[in-house]
Amino acid sequence: MSNLTVNGESMNETVLIQQAQQGEVQAFNELVIEYQDLAYSVAYRIMQNDTAADITQNAFISAFEKIHQFKGGSFKAWMMRIITNACYDELRRLKRRSTSSLDEMQEDSDGLDLMDETSISFVGEAIHPEASVQRNELQEIIENCIKALADIHRIVVVMADIEQYRYEEIADMAGVSLGTVKSRLSRARANLRDCLQTHRELLPEKYRLSK
């Protein structure tokens, strides 16, 4: 349980949660500050478009409304679950409108100009511009490869390799079997590896994939 600083004082997260459960929006906002980068990261990497910000905002509103249901444990995990489910809902909604297929997405992902709209920036960006540019280039490659995955693969890989949920948790959230999670994750990783392989020269040496 992390300690947060409020008005110069260190406050235990539990206290903030309790206050938020009493309706103290200021206390809840301290939790928002603590987790908003992570929440947005997850939402963006699943959604891969600018709906991520709205989803994140609404997820925080929803979390505040439902915070009386939080019964303890990891608030971070609870919050990430709300975010992930909000993304799921949106993907399902988009699916109903018959949006992206893997083929369409892969056609889109041929170039690096995919990140057009993404004025995404990273927490703790390097002070040195060159290093920052180089790293951003690598990160963009990775993000593009994630983006190129099919929805069902991307959401599993984000949960497993970025959020680092266990298979059972993913199965629970995704409403699929453990075997399906295992299968989708392996395919997602294999696809990502193949995608990264095409940009091998840009990867740091320790990450260079053997041919």
Binding site: V25, F28, N29, V32, I33, Q36, D37, L38, A39, Y40, S41, Y44, R45, A53, T56, Q57, F60, I61, F64, S119, I120, S121, F122, V123, G124, E125, Q139, I142, E143, I146, V157, D161, I162, Q164, L192, L196, L203, Y207
Partner: peptide, 17 residues
């Protein structure tokens, strides 16, 4: 490992209520 190395993104706006 590469995926684990991905840094968090910075929230594009303040999500406080």
């Amino acid at each position: 490992d590469i995926l684990h190395s991905l840094p968090m993104l910075k929230a594009p706006r303040d999500f406080r209520l």
